[in-house]
Write a protein that binds this DNA or RNA. Sequence first.
DNA 1: AATGAATGAGTCTTCATTCAT
DNA 2: TATGAATGAAGACTCATTCAT
Lengths: 214, 214, 214, 214
Amino acid sequence: MAHVSRKEILQNFRTRSLLEATRKIIAAEGFDAVTMERVGSEAGITKGGIYLYFRNKNQMILAALEEIATEMLREIESQVDSKAQSWTRLCQVVRAQMESMERHKDLLRTLLLVRWLLSDQRERKKWRRLLQYRERHLNRLKAILDDGVRQKTFYPMDTARGAFYINEMMISTALRRMVDLSQLPLTKETEGLIQFLALLLRDKKHFQKSEEKT
Amino acid sequence: MAHVSRKEILQNFRTRSLLEATRKIIAAEGFDAVTMERVGSEAGITKGGIYLYFRNKNQMILAALEEIATEMLREIESQVDSKAQSWTRLCQVVRAQMESMERHKDLLRTLLLVRWLLSDQRERKKWRRLLQYRERHLNRLKAILDDGVRQKTFYPMDTARGAFYINEMMISTALRRMVDLSQLPLTKETEGLIQFLALLLRDKKHFQKSEEKT
Amino acid sequence: MAHVSRKEILQNFRTRSLLEATRKIIAAEGFDAVTMERVGSEAGITKGGIYLYFRNKNQMILAALEEIATEMLREIESQVDSKAQSWTRLCQVVRAQMESMERHKDLLRTLLLVRWLLSDQRERKKWRRLLQYRERHLNRLKAILDDGVRQKTFYPMDTARGAFYINEMMISTALRRMVDLSQLPLTKETEGLIQFLALLLRDKKHFQKSEEKT
Amino acid sequence: MAHVSRKEILQNFRTRSLLEATRKIIAAEGFDAVTMERVGSEAGITKGGIYLYFRNKNQMILAALEEIATEMLREIESQVDSKAQSWTRLCQVVRAQMESMERHKDLLRTLLLVRWLLSDQRERKKWRRLLQYRERHLNRLKAILDDGVRQKTFYPMDTARGAFYINEMMISTALRRMVDLSQLPLTKETEGLIQFLALLLRDKKHFQKSEEKT
DNA sequence: AATGAATGAGTCTTCATTCAT
DNA sequence: TATGAATGAAGACTCATTCAT
């Protein structure tokens, strides 16, 4: 095992603290609330010190956003049984992602922000890297749909588009919960969405079956 | 006969210039780029002069956003034949909205921003009025779905939720086009979405019949 | 009788309205609250129009202050019986001035302001004219004291200084009432002051005599 | 042993510079002349830097005023022999205060300003703390008077009122000197005031005896 | 004579970034 | 490494004064 120097450990710890603080602030109050002073203070380091770990504010925020994305994908992945049927797997993804977004509002708010950032022509390059995470996620969804279509569980469809829409439906559902101070419990909402997705199923019997598992 | 005084004309012209400048800047570079100095300069008026037309920056931005929302709804409404069948009407809405968003990128970016703003608990009240426009739009979509369900053109469903998802799908489609510098022409994309909606919504028994109309 | 043209009448009316508005604002909220916009609006004239009657803001304020001073002196003068004994006259002045200041808080606040203004080396010239009113008032007080000293009603003293101090005592008493939200009724306070001044009297019998009159 | 770190020294120095600059400006040109830019420049620091030492402009001004008040009280206190007779002590206070005000014109101008500020209902709370200094001073004066009355050096009187008037007389005397570019030397003026006070306060029977001491 | 739209200088305050220690 | 004092650019908002109408 590689020897990890005291220096590296500290470096790592600092970086982590800073990113965590940044995420927390973004989630709670948005980009405008992210000031070096505050991030530093919440991370137990001083304003000036931050510059030892990040070139500038923008880089720090970008790193924080990447971290959020990574975490989200990991959380979802861990809930999916890769051996299960496609519909079951789809449901698992939906439930995992909905829970993930519900648990970490910052994930959700950040998703919104990233969209906004990406929609700015001039800033696009700066944030482009973040799209990779999304792409990876969409590909997993698409694989599930492809599987289902191949096995005639789902109607034939443009699966790339399907994956995209399903993802958007999840995000917007979660978002609405946040904005509306949602009345429904999360599970009700999630099942409402799943019911909609069930319309993609050729044979509604699949729907019942997977339902028993939850 | 409405007599429009010179004063009113000027007042109107200024207000319009300011709102337009504001919209343009928001669309191009986001909220943070909206400074009184710049809005003024793009509208051909000085910083101080703006305050003759708007109480403060926030009010001005709010007005600009409301204008965008109004315009969007009007554009969509004008394309819908209220006497047509529900599926036809739904398609008309989708096409109109997709075109509207494509034409005015600022509409789209602004929608994203508003979402972000609304997701901030503390700022919610300030922007709440903007939700009314969305509500109105969703209600129109829902009415179409209700109609379709009643006439058995559509599967039975939670139409409120359906309206919500459809709207979100349109927005995210348009957004993706913007972010990805979309390869497909708009119509292709729109038809792809319509096809997906058909898959989700339409009672297969009635499929053939209504298809002829589109 | 001199013919007064319509023009002059209007001119006069406008000027009066403006000065009144200015006084009102100074009294209520201080100098900083005096904006051309507001003075104009309270006087029923527009911002720009004011410049037809006063060269600039400073001139207008100066005129307002002069008016206040004039009014104050007139009010006091009208309450003094020039044929009465010196002690009686002193009491009349004190009572009149105390009432005047109580009635028009603006008089009082303005007095404070004038002092401040005068204490500024560089601005002194601008406000110097206001001192004339004060001088006139002090001279009247001094005349009363001189009279009393000559007739051996008062102890011998530096009457100029005496007049000065008596005036200051009145002003500070009134001021304290304003600042402390004074508990005592005005007359009690005034009589308290008079009692103090009575110590200047050689023969306390005068004190009793004049007392009966109130 | 109090270790004073380099940091503390600097901190202290800056704070002092800023307060001094503020005082100087207030004294020379009044509140309106106090701008952050100017205070900074006179204290050898930049606009932005001030905010490291004071939360905002108001706090800074308040601190400056408090400093002035404290200094004034200290100067006076140091000149009073607490074991002396009441009349002697009164004279000591008068002389000390007159000198103090003469030496620091800013003390005086500021007193005027504070009065003005306090006379504004709506701003009162903000400046209320400053009244404490005055209260303390008046109480000391009152104690002297009480002493004198008890020992029959002074006439019986409302000592609270007396203390108030004496203080006001001192202030107005000093003020007049400033406004009139006073012809008399300070000591003459002070003795004039003391003589007047003797006339008002002292029981003629005891006059000769205590005179020897002054 | 009067308006009130427009100007633009002036004010407070915030914050990313630098740099001496 | 780390600090945090200091900078300076920027931004919102106010208001006396001007001037075309």
